[in-house]
Simulated scan of single mutants.
Amino acid sequence: MAGGGAAASALSSPWRALLQRALDANAHLKHSTFFQLATVSGGGRPANRTVVFRGFLEHCDKIQINTDARSNKISEIKEWPLGEICWYFTDSWEQFRISGIIDVIDGSSLDPAKLQVDYVNLKSNQRLMFRRAQEGDESSDWMAEKVSP
């Protein structure tokens, strides 16, 4: 499963560079690879669970996790592909909220994904929102906007 993306260089977006820096700074903590994934379950109820970061899809910004195809999250994503992850790094006090369309990678073709990244650094009291200049256009540049924390 992967969320969001742009085919380009290894660090093609500014939010990915921030995320990679947070991963590197917190690598000594085993729990730094865990994040929460929220999906929409049957009846429109939110479903949230902890998953493990398995890397980025090659040559893009899509975040990968592995899961059993029989799990509830797969049927939820296939029925309603919008989701959000929340990732908090305890040593650096950084939080990433990434929302967008989730792809189930199972051999079928992938559709372009819409993605929004909300970055918060609690130590410096800084918050940035990253969006594509043209939503849905994977070739468009990322725009960062400072937001009041």
Rank of each mutant, 00 (worst) to 15 (best):
S75T: 15
A69R: 03
Q36N: 15
F89N: 06
N26F: 02
T90R: 11
I77K: 01
H59P: 00
D68I: 00
S109A: 13
K62L: 11
Q126R: 15
I101W: 10
N48L: 12
G44L: 09
T39M: 04
A8F: 08
L23T: 02
R54P: 00
S9F: 01
Q36M: 12
K30Y: 05
F35L: 12
A25M: 10
F96N: 07
Q116R: 11
T67M: 04
A27F: 12
N121Q: 10
P14L: 04
G43K: 05
N72V: 09
N48Q: 11
S108K: 13
A38K: 02
L115G: 03
S124C: 01
R54E: 05
W80L: 13
D68C: 05
E58D: 12
I65E: 01
Q95W: 01
A17W: 09
S13V: 01
V51G: 01
S41E: 07
V117E: 11
P81K: 02
Q126P: 01
S99P: 03
D24Q: 08
I63F: 08
A27C: 12
G100E: 03
S71L: 05
T67P: 11
D103P: 09
W15P: 00
S75D: 10
F35I: 03
V51C: 10
V40A: 08
Q116M: 11
G43H: 00
L115M: 05
H59E: 09
Q20E: 14
L11C: 05
A25P: 08
N66M: 08
Q95G: 14
A17E: 10
L18H: 13
R49G: 08
H28K: 15
T50P: 12
P112C: 02
K30F: 05
W15T: 07
P112H: 02
L115I: 12
F53R: 08
P81D: 07
I63K: 01
E94K: 05
R70P: 03
A22H: 05
L11E: 07
A47N: 00
G43L: 10
C60H: 13
F34D: 13
S12T: 04
S99Y: 07
T50C: 13
A38S: 15
Q116N: 10
W93I: 09
T50G: 11
L23V: 00
Q64H: 03
V52Q: 02
F96T: 07
I63Q: 08
I77Y: 02
S71F: 07
L18I: 09
F96M: 13
N26P: 02
S124H: 12
I65S: 01
N26G: 09
H31E: 15
V117C: 15
S99T: 14
E94S: 06
I74N: 05
Q126N: 13
S71N: 12
V104R: 07
R49T: 06
V40L: 06
L37G: 09
I105H: 05
S109P: 06
E94I: 07
T90I: 11
A69Q: 00
D103M: 07
I101L: 15
I105N: 01
F89Y: 03
G100S: 07
Q20M: 12
S32E: 10
N48R: 02
S124A: 15
V104Y: 07
I101T: 15
V52R: 02
